[in-house]
């Protein structure tokens, strides 16, 4: 029995714990009995064919999706319909979207300071200092006064990452962060993510960037039809996939 399985069963450790989570969209069963435990500082890459439920899985962790059965506990807080719990979880968990979702009516700096000011109630000056620090970290401090529409896709996604970091989250969720980017911009975003990973933040990342998975992940999870089919360390996962479906998926994704 693995450490993860033990954690899942005892319901302890692990900053994120999902126990028997089931979700339906109407009649469609998107998540089937998901059991997952994520340790503090762990980097997890989730992959799988489209429609396999991987985005839904991480969106559940941030209460962007409701689930009908099972339990999700984030940093000791159970995710229920209780708004207080949802607020508590969301302020610990940052999320980066495929489509960036920057606020087009606010400058880059205002995008970054919005949540700290209104949620954390940080004074404006302080929020701006933090924002500038993180903009430096994603290497675009000079863009602070611009509007999102003036930036390239890669720059926008880096701003989106910085925006999440400004809330000083314990967990970062990435929902296909590079899928909407032109090829030449993927690297600049991945570089930022790798740097972030090296600092020990907990990361869950839905992505098809297998190179990223090899360098960064502690664990790779393969999902299909709403189930976790296989999970392993990246080396084993790529070199020695066990399940047929994993093999098929990997052959399709790595063949070109």
């Amino acid at each position: 029995m693995t450490a993860h399985e033990m954690a899942a069963e005892t319901g302890q450790h692990g900053i994120i714990q999902m126990l028997g989570v089931n979700k339906w969209f109407g009649e469609f069963h998107v998540l089937r009995d998901i059991n997952l435990s994520v340790d503090q500082g762990e980097k997890i890459v989730i992959c799988g064919p489209s429609g396999s439920g991987k985005s839904t899985l991480i969106r559940c962790i941030n209460a962007l999706e409701e689930y009908q059965r099972g339990q999700i506990i984030v940093d000791g807080v159970p995710l229920t319909n209780n708004l207080k719990n949802i607020d508590a979880v969301r302020s610990e968990v940052g999320m980066v979207f495929q489509q960036f979702n920057l606020f087009p009516h606010l400058t880059v700096l205002e995008n970054l300071t919005l949540a700290p000011i209104w949620v954390r109630k940080v004074p404006k000056r302080e929020a701006e200092e933090t924002a500038m620090y993180f903009l430096g970290r994603v290497k675009i401090p000079e863009q602070a006064a611009k509007y999102p529409g003036q930036l390239s896709g890669g720059q926008q996604q880096r701003v989106a990452i910085a925006r999440s970091l400004c809330m000083r989250p314990k967990v970062m969720l990435f929902d296909e962060p590079t899928s909407a980017l032109d090829p030449e911009m993927i690297k600049e975003v991945l570089d930022v993510m790798i740097e972030l990973a090296n600092e020990g933040i907990t990361m869950l990342c839905v992505t098809h960037e297998m190179g990223f998975a090899r360098t960064v992940a502690n664990r790779v999870i393969f999902m299909d039809r709403g189930q976790i089919i296989e999970q392993n360390e990246p080396e084993e996962f790529f070199n020695n996939p066990q399940s047929e479906r994993t093999q098929l998926f990997l052959s399709q994704i790595l063949s070109h």
């Binding site: 693995t2 993860h4 399985e5 339906w24 109407g26 009649e27 069963h29 089937r32 009995d33 009908q68 059965r69 039809r225 709403g226 189930q227 976790i228 089919i229 296989e230 999970q231 392993n232 360390e233 084993e236 020695n240 066990q242 399940s243 047929e244 479906r245 994993t246």
Partner: peptide, 21 residues
Amino acid sequence: MTQVTDTTPQDEGERPPALSV
């Protein structure tokens, strides 16, 4: 330490909670 659950979902017939459909 590989963990594999490569089975076709047995709960194919499992229904969402009655009040949601």
